[in-house]
């Protein structure tokens, strides 16, 4: 008896917690296909809310704004993050520990602390809040995640390869381009996907550093869900969840494949 409990109790517990974690998401997805206007009763299947979503021009515009911002932010943070990781991995330089420390602090500190510090900076230098301020902020909070993804890849790497390339006369730049970049490619792609998703989902930092000239999706959702229930949000939320899930699966697939 005791062995049966010892065997099944942990499994039951794991299952229960997973069910609780996924139940709200499931409800959201199911309700996004609900015909009901009030959003609580089930009135049959309908794609009505998806339709009204795509007929809302301001919404579609915010969607494109968000996707464009995420695309640029992910790309810039991947480039800078990869260079940072390479520098931390290969070079000895002054203040290396401080650099590491700053990246760690960005990752650990509450988003709101980062958000107000950037707002203060942008207003001090007189920058108009809009695409540029959002981009700088998003790149900054994505950066540490790209760096650790690439560092993880570099740490299991045969150090003799770059040495060999140097001995054969390659310059630092050539060696990086022909030896290191191909090695870290999977990590770059995974870091890019993570950055894209983080940028697309960010509410806290964007609340502070966005301006009326560039409206993005998370802030539109935020203004919609503060009061009551909006069936359109069910549809929009479902789309965002599916999108993020695809990005995550893609990233896992890339990393898994590269391990073989």
């Amino acid at each position: 008896m005791e062995r049966v409990i010892a065997r099944w109790l942990p499994r039951t517990y794991l299952t229960l917690v997973y069910v609780l974690l996924y139940l709200p998401i499931l409800v959201l997805v199911v309700f996004s296909f609900n015909a009901s206007r009030t959003g609580y009763q089930w009135d049959g299947l309908s794609l009505h809310w998806y339709e009204s979503l795509f007929n809302n021009r301001a919404m579609v515009k915010a969607m494109w704004n968000s996707l464009w911002l995420a695309l640029v932010a992910a790309t810039v943070s991947t480039v800078i993050g990869a260079l940072t990781a390479l520098a931390l991995h290969r070079y000895r330089f002054r203040g290396k520990r401080m650099l590491n420390g700053m990246l760690f602090v960005v990752m650990m500190s509450p988003e709101i602390v980062l958000a107000i510090s950037l707002l203060a900076l942008f207003l001090l230098i007189g920058m108009q809040l809009g695409f540029m301020s959002l981009l700088l902020a998003h790149v900054t909070f994505c950066l540490p995640f790209v760096v650790i993804t690439v560092m993880a890849r570099l740490s299991g790497f045969d150090e003799r390869l770059p040495e060999a390339a140097r001995d054969l006369g390659a310059s630092d730049f050539t060696m990086t381009r022909t030896v290191l970049i191909p090695v870290i490619m999977p990590a770059l792609m995974a870091g890019w996907l993570l950055g894209f998703t983080l940028s697309l989902d960010d509410v806290v930092v964007s609340t502070f550093v966005s301006g009326p000239s560039y409206e993005i999706l998370p802030l539109r959702i935020y203004s919609m869900v503060r009061v009551g229930l909006k069936p359109e949000v069910n549809a929009l939320g479902t789309l965002l969840l599916v999108f993020s899930l695809v990005m995550l699966m893609l990233s896992q697939w890339i990393l898994m494949r590269s391990k073989r």
Binding site: L14, Y18, L21, Y22, L23, P24, I25, V27, L28, F31, T38, G39, Y40, L194, T197, L200, D201, V203, P218, I221, Y222, V225, L229, V233, N234, L236, G237, L240, L241, S244, L245, M247, L248, Q252
Partner: peptide
Amino acid sequence: LVFLLIVPFWTNSLVRTYALKLLLATNGL
């Protein structure tokens, strides 16, 4: 199972907060 734990990290936490509203509301689930 670890993959299932990472999913929340990649998905929009505002949307998931809103999803809880569907469950907790006075005439919610």
